[in-house]
Design a protein around this nucleic acid. Sequence first.
DNA 1: AATGTGTTCAACCGCTAGCGT
DNA 2: AACGCTAGCGGTTGAACACAT
Length: 262
Amino acid sequence: MGQDDETMRKGPWTEHEDFQLVFYVHMFGDRRWDFIANVSGLKRTGKSCRLRWVNYLHPGLKRGKMTPHEERLVLELHAKFGNRWSKIARKLPGRTDNEIKNYWRTHMRKKAQEKKRTTCRSPSPSFSHCSSSSSICTSNPTIDSMPKIETKERSFYDTGGVDMFSVIKAKNNNNNKDFKNSSARVSDTSEGLDGMDDIWKDIDNLLEDDSIKPVFDPYSEIAPSLAWDYCSSTSWMLNGQEEFGKDMLSLTSQQFSSRLTD
DNA sequence: AATGTGTTCAACCGCTAGCGT
DNA sequence: AACGCTAGCGGTTGAACACAT
């Protein structure tokens, strides 16, 4: 889009970037990634922002090891759907397609190694014999009892923004330790904050501070997508929405930037 | 303690479906 | 119908970490 590829950052995200992204996703919802990428000042593509959000920052994500039940489900669902990772992920709330894909790769490698070792002794009772095109596992009660989420439905990752905020708040109040701990790993260099825990807290605090409250009240009943529709329907948005965004948000951006560097 | 090897997982890339014009 | 744009998907890569020697 507007920015040329040479100025774009690549590689691991810093805590500061995470913080910014979370903040702007909260402001505008998790839909307009290119816009968020531009407006936030992050030197990242919209694509990269989306990926970071979906795979790492999304408040609904579970972190940590797969439970045996989840492992079984992945195997079963893979037997049913093949490498349709996003489809499989929709059946496992809190797990991303990337996570499942990675898990499967590891799993398959292990399986392959095991197979090598036990060179075609008795056939394994596991699911490894189910090819992606196989129908062997299709009438599985576990899968069939799962809620059916079809393509037109709201994606798990699509939190909107107001919903997300409530999740953030909930996150602050309890658990999700794995999520927070693992996120801290991203930036060992940053001493100021202790992983996502503090990011969520700071965002929470920032937004509760009236002086820097976003234009769109996160506590209101207006979904961010609607807020966005409202924004985009106005002339200032049509005539250079990026400039508007930068102006409007520069203050807030500076505020949380300074918090990080304190 | 140093080095090698294996494992995990975040992030990138290329492609495609879907939507608006 | 054709085109352009964007979000989303699946495959792949490589850095960081864990464990073995």
